[in-house]
């Protein structure tokens, strides 16, 4: 810009259709670039600034999102994903987004998000008995996931599935139990024939799954019930380039292999395995 001139600024309302279009595109972009945790939906647009650029306009947005029940690897379209309710201990995301609008087309140039669960006090306000989110590295959580995955593989006639990440966990007081959700991926081993799981490798054409399980403590033992949904295989795609936009809705981190990116518009899950109840 010439000295003494400030860039042209355009006032836009947060609920303006143009702002919403930009925000929804940003949310789609986020969901197609995260590989951990859950997909998010747009909840509120906090702020919008529009500046003139030599080749178009620059949009700077602050948006609030809410976690859905669809895992990031789940190809279900976002419109079909349910928002995680307050009673399930909701999680919100706060994102700073920048987009360019050139020739009427938006493109995302920068995204930075952080996510945080609702406070325990807020959950208690709507439900006294609702279990709160538990740390994913809690020994009871890890044990429940291991038991559930072992139970699933024991009943599975196909590939051996490996843990990708633990995505959610809740400790339930009565009956004493642990509810967990985790992502899995198919390997080149056959589930019934595995001797050393460490020697199994993820398939080149990735096949992910998402499991929900409950491990209930009983006198003299425990029961585990697990249901896994295995998604359609995903074609091999190149890894993201290092100079690409910085994107992420930080979710819970697990000790697992990082999956490769998946296209955002894959067809809905085509295969459901389970429930396997042991």
């Amino acid at each position: 810009l010439p000295n003494g001139l400030s860039p042209a600024y355009r006032q836009l309302n947060c609920d303006d259709p143009e702002t919403e279009q930009a925000a929804l595109l940003a949310v789609d972009y986020i969901n197609s670039h995260i590989h951990q945790g859950y997909k998010h939906v747009l909840n509120q647009i906090d702020k919008v600034q529009v500046w003139a650029q030599p080749t178009g306009e620059s949009f700077k947005l602050e948006i609030d999102t809410l976690e859905t029940t669809c895992h990031a690897l789940d190809p279900t379209p976002l419109a079909n994903c349910s928002v995680r309710q307050l009673t399930q201990h909701a999680v919100e995301g706060d994102c700073d987004v920048r987009l360019l609008k050139q020739n009427g087309q938006f493109s995302v140039s920068f995204v930075k998000c952080k996510s945080s669960p609702d406070s325990a006090e807020d959950v208690r306000k709507v439900c006294l008995d609702c279990p709160l989110l538990a740390p994913l590295n809690d020994t009871r959580v890890v044990h429940a996931v291991e038991a559930a995955l072992a139970a699933f593989n024991a009943q599975n006639n196909g590939s051996y599935f490996q843990l990708v990440e633990i995505s959610r966990a809740q400790l339930v007081p009565l009956p004493v139990s642990v509810h967990v959700e985790f992502a899995v991926a198919a390997t080149d081993c056959v589930a019934k024939e595995v001797i050393d799981p460490a020697k199994c490798n993820l398939l080149a054409e990735k096949q992910y799954g998402f499991c929900k399980a409950t491990l209930t403590e009983k006198v003299g033992g425990e029961d585990v019930a697990v249901t896994c949904t295995v998604f359609q295989t995903q074609p091999v795609v190149p890894l993201p380039q290092p100079d690409g936009p910085d994107v992420g809705v930080p979710g819970p981190v697990a000790d697992a292999a990082t999956p490769e990116p998946s296209p955002a518009d894959l067809p809905v899950a085509s295969l459901v395995v389970g429930p396997v109840v042991v």
Binding site: C14, E20, L42, N43, Q44, L66
Partner: peptide
């Protein structure tokens, strides 16, 4: 016709540009 400039301004809808509407719930 009598104009009441003071009251006319107060009677109109207040447009708050930001933040926008909450689609689900606020936490």
């Amino acid at each position: 016709k009598v104009a009441h400039p003071n009251t006319a301004a107060a009677a109109g809808p207040v447009v708050r540009p930001c933040p926008g509407r909450i689609r689900y719930f606020k936490i």
